[in-house]
């Protein structure tokens, strides 16, 4: 191949020079970015206050979860809701003894509570709280509808196993147990409930009904 030393040198100088220039530009750009990144945040006083508030509320959330956990380790009964606060169409979320989400409904038939696990039996998503017209709740992750009375998923749903029911006790204002339900058995009524003054009654979950105690998975 014919080589012209002058041409060759020109290519070298141009190439090397251009790369040097772009390398310099790149490294100084990156260096500037790096310095600004490492010198920390640039927050106004208002931003800092708001941000600290956010952080604090997240810590509160974690703290409340820890409290829930402690309560479940130490108490025999845990308050879920007042009877009068339960709805037939929208569930109230609570956390069961295994720290799993669960839902509390009022039965549209007898007015007694229905407590059902909200941890989908398919892949563990939290099931939604709203009841559809067929009294089913929906797991949004893979569209499984669960009937809250039986716990069963609809035919052909990704979830195969039913959502387990959770046992409950109802206490009156004097903390006297007036009714209870073991997850697998019928309701035991100790004293007839006055359905007109439901705010006198509170619903609790009981350690003796927790799935570990009753030997369920």
């Amino acid at each position: 191949m014919e080589t012209d030393p002058l041409q060759t040198r020109k290519h070298f100088i141009l190439g090397f020079g251009a790369l040097l220039l772009s390398g310099l530009a790149l490294s100084s750009t990156l260096f500037a970015k790096l310095v600004s990144y490492l010198s920390g945040d640039r927050m106004s006083q208002i931003d800092r206050t708001l941000f600290l508030k956010t952080k604090l509320s997240r810590m509160d959330q974690t703290a409340s979860e820890r409290k829930l956990e402690l309560e479940r380790k130490s108490s025999e009964y845990i308050f879920i809701a007042k009877m009068s606060d339960l709805l037939a169409t929208k569930g109230k979320y609570f956390i069961d003894y295994e720290m799993r989400p669960a839902l509390a409904f009022q039965s549209s038939e007898d007015g007694l509570p229905i407590l059902i696990s909200a941890k989908c039996t398919h892949l563990g998503c939290t099931v939604g709280a709203d009841l559809d017209e067929n009294s089913r709740i929906l797991c949004p992750c893979h569209v499984s509808y669960f009937d809250i009375k039986s716990g069963m998923p609809h035919a052909g749903s990704p979830a195969k196993a039913p959502l387990p029911h959770i046992g409950w006790v109802i206490m009156d204002k004097q903390s006297k147990i007036v009714a209870s339900k073991h997850p697998k058995r019928e309701v035991e009524i100790v004293e007839k409930l006055d359905m007109d003054s439901l705010d006198h009654y509170s619903i609790y979950i009981a350690k003796k009904f927790a799935s570990k105690a009753t030997g369920e998975a």
Partner: peptide, 19 residues
């Protein structure tokens, strides 16, 4: 940590220069 992970990521993207 579960209480701070999300807000620290938020801190990086919103407030740290070039974050």
């Amino acid at each position: 940590t579960v209480s701070d992970a999300h807000s620290s990521v938020e801190h990086i993207t919103q407030y740290v220069g070039g974050g």
